[in-house]
C-alpha cells in the first residue's frame, strides 16, 4: 500500500515528456537523459488549449460587441474586462496600451489554468491512460498527464520571465539606460562608496520579483494539487474532504490569478516611475 501510494502520487505529479532522440521523438522515460531539451507536452497542450478558449471566447464577444443592450455573455466578458481595467487604472497612472491587455491575459489565463485544479485528480490521467492503452498499446502506468499547467514551474516561470523582461524594458525605456543604472546603484544609500552594496541589494530586489511571482503561483497550485492527490488516496472518506478542499480552492484559484495580475501591474508601474 505504501509503495502503491508513493508510486500513485509520483505518477500524478509527473509530466508527459517529449524529446528528440537520434532522428526521432521519444517520450517520457526515454527522455530521462535529455536534459534541457525536453518538452512537457501536457503543460503545453493544456495551457495553449485554455489560452485559446480564453482568447476565442473573448474575441467572439469582441467581434459581436454591441454598444446597445449587451447579451449575457458580453456582460460577463465586460465585467472581467472592466475589473481588470479598474485594477490597472487604480495602480498604473501612465499611458500604456500593453499593460491592460497583458493583465487581462494573465488574469484569465492563469485563472483558467488554476481552475483545472478542480477537475478530480484521477479523471484526466485515467482517460489518458485508457486512450494510451487501447489506441497506442502503452502501459497505462507509462502514460503521464498533469492537467494543471500552473503546477509546472516552466509555466509559471514563462509568465514571470515575460513580466521580468517587460520590467527591464520599461525601466530602460522610461528612465533611460543611465536612469536605470542609477536606480540600481544609488539606492537605498545615495553615496558613491555604497554603489556595490546598493547594486547587490537592488539586483536581489529586481530578480526576486519574477522568482517570487513564479514560485508563489507554482507553490500554491502544486501544494493544492498534491493535497488533492493525497486526499484521493484515503479511500471512501475522501469525498467530503475532497469537497472541502475544492471549496477552499474557490478562494485560492481566483486569488492566485488576481495576485499574479496585480503584482504584474505594480511591478510595471514601478518600472514607469522615476524616483
Amino acid at each position: 500500500m505504501a509503495a502503491d501510494t508513493g508510486s500513485y502520487i509520483k505518477h500524478h505529479l509527473t509530466n508527459a515528456k517529449m524529446c528528440m532522440s537520434d532522428g526521432g521523438v521519444a517520450f517520457n522515460k526515454a527522455c530521462a537523459d535529455a536534459g534541457f531539451w525536453t518538452v512537457h507536452v501536457d503543460t503545453l497542450a493544456w495551457s495553449i488549449v485554455l489560452g485559446l478558449i480564453f482568447l476565442l471566447t473573448f474575441r467572439s464577444v469582441a467581434k459581436k460587441a454591441t454598444t446597445g443592450v449587451p447579451g449575457k455573455m458580453q456582460c460577463a466578458v465586460e465585467m472581467v474586462v472592466e475589473f481588470v481595467d479598474k485594477s490597472v487604472k487604480e495602480t498604473f497612472h501612465g499611458k500604456n496600451a500593453l499593460i491592460a491587455p497583458l493583465s487581462l491575459t494573465i488574469f484569465v489565463w492563469v485563472l483558467l489554468m488554476n481552475a483545472m485544479d478542480w477537475v478530480p485528480v484521477d479523471w484526466i490521467p485515467t482517460i489518458a491512460g485508457l486512450i494510451g492503452q487501447h489506441a497506442f498499446g502503452m502501459d497505462p502506468h507509462d502514460v503521464y498527464i498533469k492537467s494543471v499547467p500552473t503546477t509546472d514551474m516552466n509555466m509559471t516561470f514563462a509568465l514571470s520571465l515575460g513580466v521580468f523582461f517587460l520590467i527591464i524594458y520599461y525601466s530602460i525605456k522610461v528612465k533611460g539606460l543611465g536612469g536605470f543604472a542609477k536606480e540600481l546603484t544609488l539606492q537605498p544609500f545615495n553615496h558613491p562608496a555604497f554603489i556595490p552594496v546598493n547594486f547587490i541589494l537592488e539586483s536581489v530586489t529586481l530578480i526576486a520579483r519574477p522568482v517570487s511571482l513564479a514560485l508563489r503561483l507554482f507553490g500554491n497550485l502544486y501544494a493544492g494539487e498534491l493535497i488533492f492527490i493525497l486526499i484521493a488516496t484515503i479511500g471512501l472518506f475522501q469525498l467530503p474532504v475532497h469537497f472541502l478542499w475544492a471549496a477552499f480552492h474557490l478562494l485560492v484559484i481566483p486569488l492566485q490569478a488576481f495576485i499574479f495580475m496585480m503584482l504584474t501591474i505594480v511591478y510595471l508601474s514601478l518600472a514607469h516611475e522615476d524616483h
Partner: peptide, 13 residues
C-alpha cells in the same frame, strides 16, 4: 525541472 517547456510557454504567452 526547468526545460524547453519554458521556451514554448514563453512563446505562447
Amino acid at each position: 525541472n526547468i526545460n524547453a517547456t519554458l521556451i514554448g510557454e514563453s512563446i505562447a504567452f
